[in-house]
């Protein structure tokens, strides 16, 4: 078994494991105009075809809660034999005009206290403080995009973190352990696969293999030992990476990145 392996190892080429560490988006991508319009249309259709809300099941007859509920509902136009209705004669069942979508309004508390489940939903802002201050080392920026870790090497400039192979270790372990040596132990990642997602063959014969991984928790902090090699790091979107890397290098790695 060892004989053929040794024969191929004779011409040992320098191999490096590159790590593409990504933070997946926290917020879904923004809807395009056509998506928004289509979903609006479908929503309206669905509401029109919806069954009448059975209020009698949720509010007992004659109770205060029933009164509260009924008092905030919009009353439909009542059928009167002496009246001419240009938009069709009203057809009301269970207090709902059957030819229209029903609008169910939930009664709100006067004070708007926190315990009330019908309180209006407060949405957290999608543009964060890190976005406003332009802090590129924060993981809390660009919540709609996938962010990738780029480090600034003193000798070669901005690039994905790359590690020289150590004997015996596989590509993914070298990449993951290397990340801990430059970025500290307090980082939780999940390697997608042991198989490399891509390769760049350089002119001098060296090979750069790319391993994909996701950050789940923790923080990347440049360790004291590696501060001589690495000056800074950043979490960047694909667009920003295109500006940091040189053109050829970006073209070779473009397919690995998403918006």
């Amino acid at each position: 078994m060892s004989a053929p392996a040794k024969a191929t190892f004779r011409k040992a080429v320098p191999i490096r494991a590159n790590l593409i560490l990504s933070r997946i988006p926290l917020v879904v991508p923004e809807q395009t105009k056509i998506e928004q319009q289509y979903h609006d249309y479908q929503n309206q259709l669905e509401r029109r075809m919806m069954w009448t809300f059975p209020a009698y099941h949720y509010f007992k007859k004659g109770t205060l809660s029933e009164h509260k509920f009924l008092s905030v509902q919009k009353k439909p136009i009542i059928k009167n034999p002496d009246v001419w209705y240009p938009k069709g004669v009203p057809d009301i069942q269970h207090g709902r005009e059957r030819s229209k979508a029903q609008e169910v309004i939930l009664p709100q508390n006067e004070g708007g206290e926190g315990s009330n489940i019908t309180r209006p939903v407060e949405k957290n802002p999608i543009i964060t403080t890190a976005d406003e201050s332009g802090d590129k080392s924060s993981l809390e920026r660009r919540l709609r995009n996938t962010l990738y870790l780029l480090v600034n090497y003193k000798k070669t400039g901005w690039n994905f973190p790359k590690f020289e192979m150590k004997d015996g270790a596989s590509l993914d372990t070298v990449a993951e352990n290397g990340l801990r040596t430059i970025g500290g132990d307090n980082i939780n990642t999940w390697t997608v696969s042991k198989k490399p997602a891509g390769v760049i063959k350089s002119e001098d014969g060296s090979c750069d293999f790319f391993i994909k991984s996701h950050i789940l928790a923790g923080k990347f902090n440049i360790a004291n030992d590696s501060k001589n090699d690495i000056t800074e790091y950043a979490w960047l979107t694909k667009k920003e990476i295109a500006e940091k890397l040189n053109k050829d290098q970006f073209q070779l790695t473009e397919y690995l990145l998403t918006k």
Partner: peptide, 15 residues
């Protein structure tokens, strides 16, 4: 990913 971000955006205190 959700429609709107959570209250605590990122768990930094991982040990």
């Amino acid at each position: 990913p959700t429609d709107y971000p959570p209250r605590k955006l990122w768990y930094y205190d991982y040990k």
